[in-house]
Nucleic acid binder design. Structure first.
Lengths: 217, 217
DNA sequence: AAGTCATGTGACTAAAAAGTCATATTTTTT
DNA sequence: AAAAAATATGACTTTTTAGTCACATGACTT
């Protein structure tokens, strides 16, 4: 947690520092990100930085929390009306909300994306603590509910499918980040929406040809 | 490319150096990997290293090539009998061969995995050159053939599905690397084989309940 | 006005990195 | 055996990093 001196700072100065840090961490991995560059960009002294934050990790963790909180805001509406909607509608809405978060919070997404893909297990443990990022635990619950309701094939392996679905959500995010490299923001939702639709369709129905008898034996 | 002085080295010395390097790059990202540590482990002088390799990148590229060549050896049998087998058999065999490569080349897999997940686009370009890692280009061809043969639903988006399938193969590798953290090698194939089977089944059939009429309208 | 406490500062330290180079040793050629 | 070419060496340079610390400045209290 940042020190009180940081929270007591005038709003403008706080955001100046955070923006400089978000910029640096979105361009560089945790290891390569430089405190020196951040303080230069934010126009504060190196010593001041250490009045505000314990160390580099303290700053990074704080920024990651901002990103997580922000993303939750996007997912909240879907989570709230989950009860009254079927599995595939909820899944579709989650994917779409995820895309919207990335669109409107490009740098924060990059930071989170980097951390998740990072092989620095030590760092990940320090950030996630013991509460591992079980977004797929949530998907598991969703799948189980879908099975109960008769929407989902009960013979699936819930654990495996939840991992697959989590991974596919990263696929979408990555796809978006790659096409919009360097922050070129197009307002062309249609491409991504089509992508989500096709992806959901594939998850629903599979890719094997139907109707005919493909005898497996 | 390493210099001739490297290739002229006695076999034992060469492997000593390569093993030290593979070890270092499997434990650290390209940026964090240290030439100093490699030369210490390999018991050669810093100056000697630069007689063998142009620089750090030269060494890393060489090791990545070793990994790619090695993996191809595992995939080759499947690719050779591709013509005579149906889509899902080929896909299954590719996934299984991928797992076997990871099992038997733990460190090399980690290095390749790290590079693919890396956000250092500059590095990736230098390694992959213009020939981007189009393992999914190959999957596209495979899918198109499957459609022609009447095995695959022709209404799918070939491009998207190939990305999904490529991603799922990473999911498997990651899953294996995570469960076998720190190189603990179990001979328990069954878990992974079951995982591949279930994954293929899901890709084939989707997860929506079949038989009933879920009217979408 | 004096004193106290919070905040601001940038030169500095220590550690680590990639890469260099003058010199020494070994191997090959004549 | 002598000369030449190839290879080996590790101290050194330069750069960059996170973090520290003695001191300066500002604000609030008595």
């Amino acid at each position: 947690m940042p020190k009180n001196t940081f929270f007591n700072l005038p709003e403008r100065k706080k955001t100046r520092i955070l923006n400089a840090a978000i910029d640096e961490f979105s361009k560089n991995s945790y290891e390569k990100a430089s405190i020196t560059r951040i303080v230069n960009t934010a126009n504060i002294a190196k010593g001041s930085f250490y009045q505000y934050f314990e160390n580099k990790l303290d700053l990074f963790r704080h920024i990651f929390m901002i990103s997580a909180d922000e993303k939750l805001k996007y997912l909240k509406p879907t989570l709230d009306k989950m009860e009254s909607e079927d599995f595939f509608t909820t899944l579709r809405n989650l994917y779409v909300a995820g895309i919207e978060f990335v669109k409107e919070n490009y740098k924060l997404s990059q930071i989170a994306d980097r951390l998740i893909k990072s092989n620095n297990e030590n760092l990940k443990n320090k950030i996630f603590g013991e509460t591992k990022p079980k977004s797929n635990h949530f998907l598991k619950e969703l799948l189980l509910r879908g099975i109960k309701r008769g929407e989902i094939d009960p013979s699936i392996d819930v654990e495996l499918v939840s991992v697959m679905l989590t991974n596919l959500s990263f696929t979408i995010t990555e796809y978006y980040l790659k096409t919009n490299e360097k922050g070129i923001v197009t307002d062309d939702y249609s491409d991504l929406m089509e992508m989500v639709e096709k992806m959901i369709y594939t998850i629903e129905n599979g890719i094997k040809i139907k109707g005919e008898d493909n005898n497996d034996y």
